[in-house]
């Protein structure tokens, strides 16, 4: 499991989640995104195309990051959720809290 960060040419930070986002690694994701926020990043996309599963701690860290990014005047979008993950967001009603795109390209185009 790992996280990759890259910036597109307009400065949008795209974070890839490879494997799972769970209680054991959520702090690593949180720190990476907060560091990028501190470094001047304002627009973020978290890409779950390569993600197998997310537990409630992982969902919680996304909620917390979204709040922090919005407080700094930025924006967080999610993309690449498979059918199961999309259902998880719908059941928890977190689909109402996040802007969710199908693909990274779609998420980037929405900024």
């Amino acid at each position: 499991m790992s996280f990759s960060l890259k910036k597109d040419k307009r400065g949008v930070v795209v974070v890839g989640v490879d494997g799972q986002l769970i209680v054991g690694n959520r702090q690593e994701l949180k720190q990476k995104v907060l560091d990028a926020l501190e470094g001047g990043g304002a627009k973020f996309v978290i890409d779950f195309t390569k993600t197998g599963y997310i537990d409630s701690s992982g969902l919680g860290v996304l909620v917390s990051l979204s709040k922090k990014i919005r407080e700094q005047g930025g924006d967080l979008r999610l993309c690449g959720l498979n059918e199961d993950l999309q259902t998880l967001f719908e059941l928890t009603k977190l689909d109402t809290l996040f802007a969710i795109a199908k693909t990274p390209e779609e998420a980037l185009a929405a900024f």
Binding site: S56, G60, L88, L91, T92
Partner: peptide, 12 residues
């Protein structure tokens, strides 16, 4: 409670 970081475990 939607914007709370915790409290979803049992529901999930």
């Amino acid at each position: 409670r939607l914007e709370r970081e915790d409290g979803r475990g049992l529901f999930v």
